[in-house]
Design a protein around this nucleic acid. Structure first.
Length: 793
DNA sequence: GAGTTTGAAACT
DNA sequence: CAGTTTCAAACTC
């Protein structure tokens, strides 16, 4: 990676102006080349960011790769930075800031390398592209540095004047940056002069950048780091794909750097989001007013917003690729990831303030389908995080089922999300939604099929998270877990966003709904001594592994829906409304399967032969198979009860139907666009040992969550991210054989399916990345329904 | 909101 | 594998 990039960068830089890419950019943004660059960033970031964040994997190895990747980019960056700053008198503030940040981030070794390149380049006007690259490369590092910097205070500089003021303060930061960057110092010096000339000094920029970069809390920084590390594989994939699309290597580098930058930026943004949301709108408006598209004001509050603003302005003005939407999407992805990581810390802090902006997307998942999709709604807080977490847990499911169609859907949803983001994030953005969509489509088209998948997955997650939008989030977050649940249920929101109240299990046992759903606990949870948080990822994964070792299906969806399932169940299947059945069946003795104590009833499915219940009166179908009563209470005795329950049944049952397939998935925000995956039911032949259920449902809710859910992680998570490592390892270690070998679904299911399901999420995540693909294959074999990472759905 | 009931999960 | 205990959700008051 490094070598090729370097080579590319060095040569291209000199040729930059001549390069077709450059020309193209210029054509796009006649006003300012810099803007065009940003646009490219947004685009790249969009494709790139979404997936990584969601699927960020815990794999350490991946982190290394990422770091390398970043470094390589950085190498190119330094030179670019220096030049860019100089060149960019036009866009002094914003870009300079970025460049400053980048400089800070630059590694010494890298810097040296870059310098070599820089010397020649320095004079030349590094055009926006270079700058972007620099930003992308440097930002990550700079962010890290900033975390520790005393000047972390993100004082917003709405205007150039502000920036200048900050400059006075900046000196410290600059020093730091200079120190950090051995080679970069030279750049800074050169640039500093220019800064003065331009009116936006390096210092000011550096300060701003530092502000942006600075994490509100150490935790955030850590989370951010984690994100960066996690996503490397995916990023690489995106980059490669992106590069392939572009004619010249130079462009690819730029894109990569941009992507990286955006990723980092997003992370920051997520961390900082809470405060940002309120401010963003006004700021964005302000930025919009600025001809240059300087989003400086936003920078103070949140770098993420800042970038987005710029993007909006720029993109809206000229670039065909809707950058904003793109940029937003990545953010959503990142947010999810961040949520995973930061759920505990950030959300809390956020909740206190604005209501947890940090992980809006994730929250959205929790919420029903976000009608508005507003990022702001994100609320972040607990909900979002939760949503994210589920996403992670669900990742496998969500990923597995992805198909081209799903991709399309995702794209659409993404577009919608993007639009929503645009609306919310930049209320003032000049861009029209259509343009954004177009840009998104273009970006998608550009990306490789795999990339597309990844993007879609990310996008999907984003959508989910975003969907939740209601401003109510804050309220919900504040409310007690029970109230939230009830609201969710009543409101029809997905039950998937579960909030536990564990006191003794540390949320590391299946008692914990969150843990069982493969989601990290979030603020809304009232759990005590909770270890089901990104901070304890290792513990969570280890515990999961243990549980899966005992019961591979432990994390598998409890309710399987599918025509197949019905066939397997035979009579039972006919009974259940949706031909869905509880995987293991219930063991009710006193509730007559008429209350939510009964998992079958709770899942909105009839009891099956697998059930050991006594006196089954399940309204959805008794295990006798005698009659499907359905939710309607047919039985005489229970008629009254039924009536009482009806109200409940219908509502929650409906939820189940929507969510049931993916119980967890339901947690994922039901996306208007249809994010919800169809239940992936694995119809396994009789072979399955599973005593009770022949099928394994892949993941119902998980899948949805994953995409989102998570995204988890994710979606992602980020679960996605967490799960990724374990799942992969688990899959490979534990399940792989089963999946691969098991020609028969049942066998796979029994031994692996549950695990695979669980595991799969992470795998799926990986699947997005080339590295992960291997895991995906295994999963697919074992579990047909599993969506690939791409799934986006 | 506190207490009870219930059944899954975990343990032996 | 069966029995018991633990646990947290669901439910009731």
């Amino acid at each position: 990676m490094d070598t090729p990039e370097r080579n590319q960068i060095a040569a291209p830089i000199s040729k930059f102006e001549d390069s077709p890419v450059f020309n193209y950019i210029n054509s796009l943004s006649p006003i300012k080349p810099v803007k065009s660059i940003r646009i490219t960033q947004a685009f790249s970031s969009l494709t790139f960011g979404s997936l990584p964040s969601i699927f960020t994997s815990p794999h350490v190895s991946s982190s290394h790769k990422e770091s390398r990747f970043l470094r390589s980019h950085q190498d190119s960056d330094p030179s670019n930075i220096g030049t860019s700053c100089k060149d960019e008198n036009k866009i002094p503030t914003a870009e300079c800031d970025v460049s400053d940040v980048a400089q800070l981030a630059e590694n010494e070794s890298e810097l040296q390398e870059n310098f070599d390149i820089l010397v020649p380049i320095g004079e030349s006007s590094v055009e926006p592209l270079d700058e972007h690259q620099e930003f992308a490369l440097d930002l990550p590092q700079s962010l890290k540095y900033d975390c520790g910097s005393p000047n972390s205070d993100p004082t917003p500089c709405s205007t150039a004047a502000d920036c200048t003021v900050s400059k006075s303060d900046a000196p410290v930061d600059e020093k730091n940056s200079q120190i950090d960057l051995p080679d970069g110092r030279s750049h800074q010096e050169g640039t500093s002069q220019q800064k003065n000339d331009t009116g936006c000094g390096w210092e000011s920029l550096a300060l701003e950048s530092t502000d942006l970069l600075i994490f509100s809390s150490p935790n955030d920084a850590a989370a951010f780091r984690g994100l960066i590390q996690r996503s490397p594989d995916v990023e690489v994939g995106y980059f490669t794909s992106m590069v392939s699309n572009f004619p010249e290597n130079e462009v690819s580098e730029e894109l990569k750097s941009h992507l990286l930058y955006q990723l980092t930026f997003n992370e920051q943004h997520e961390a900082e989001e809470p405060s940002c949301q309120p401010v963003d709108p006004s700021e964005q408006k302000d930025t919009n007013t600025l001809p240059n598209g300087v989003a400086i004001s936003n920078l103070d509050n949140h770098t993420g917003t800042y970038l987005s603003v710029n993007m909006d302005n720029e993109v809206g003005a000229h670039i065909p690729f809707a950058n904003k939407p793109i940029s937003d999407l990545p953010r959503g992805m990142r947010r999810r990831c961040l949520d995973f990581e930061m759920v505990g810390t950030q959300q809390k802090s956020l909740d206190g303030g604005s209501g947890g902006i940090s992980s809006p997307l994730l929250k959205s998942d929790e919420n029903d389908i976000p009608k508005n999709k507003q990022l702001v709604v994100v609320k972040g807080g607990g909900d979002s995080s939760r949503c994210i977490v589920p996403g992670i847990g669900l990742h496998l499911n969500a990923l597995t089922s992805t198909t081209k169609d799903s991709r399309i859907v995702k794209h659409e949803s993404l577009l919608s999300d993007v639009q929503a983001l645009n609306v919310h994030m930049s209320t003032t953005s000049l861009q029209s939604p259509l343009t954004n969509q177009e840009s998104l489509h273009k970006s998608l088209t550009l990306s490789n099929a795999e990339e597309m998948d990844h993007d879609n997955g990310l996008q999907v997650a984003e959508e989910v998270s975003q969907a939740p939008t209601d401003l109510n989030y804050e309220e919900n977050g504040q409310t007690s877990p029970r109230k939230k649940r009830r609201r969710m249920e009543n409101g029809g929101e997905s039950e998937t966003c579960k909030r536990c109240n564990c006191k003794k299990s540390k949320c590391l046992k299946l008692y914990c709904e969150c843990f069982a759903a493969g989601v990290y606990c979030i603020e809304p949870c009232a759990c005590q001594d909770c270890f089901n948080k990104p901070i304890h990822e290792d513990t969570v994964l280890a515990t999961r592994k243990q549980i899966e070792s005992r019961n591979p299906l432990a994390f598998a969806p409890k309710v399987i829906r599918s025509s197949e399932s019905a066939s397997e169940y035979g009579e039972d299947s006919s009974k259940t409304p949706a031909s869905a059945r509880h995987k293991r069946g219930c063991n009710c003795k006193k509730s007559s399967c008429l209350k939510k104590y009964c998992e079958c009833y709770q899942g909105g499915v009839g009891c099956s032969i697998n059930c050991r219940c006594e006196g089954c009166k399940n309204a959805f179908g008794t295990k006798d198979g005698s009659a499907l009563r359905g939710p309607d209470c047919e039985e005489e005795e229970e008629t009254e009860k039924c009536e009482k329950n009806k109200a409940e049944k219908i509502p929650w049952k409906m939820e189940n139907e929507n969510n049931d397939e993916l119980n967890l998935a339901s947690a994922l925000p039901s996306t208007p666009s249809g994010f919800r995956r169809p239940l992936v039911q694995l119809a396994f032949p009789s072979k399955l040992k599973q005593p009770r259920s022949s099928f394994v449902t892949i993941g119902s809710s998980y899948a949805l969550h994953s995409s989102q859910k998570m995204g988890k992680p994710d979606l992602l998570l980020p679960p996605p991210p967490k799960f990724e490592k374990l799942p992969l390892t688990n899959m490979e270690d534990e399940i792989p054989e089963i999946l691969c070998s098991s020609s028969t679904p049942t066998a796979s299911i029994k031994s692996t399916s549950p695990n695979s399901k669980r595991v799969s999420p992470p795998h799926s995540d990986f699947g997005t990345s080339p590295n992960l693909r291997s895991g995906r294959r295994l999963i697919l074999q074992s579990i047909p329904s599993f969506p690939s990472l791409t799934p986006q759905h």
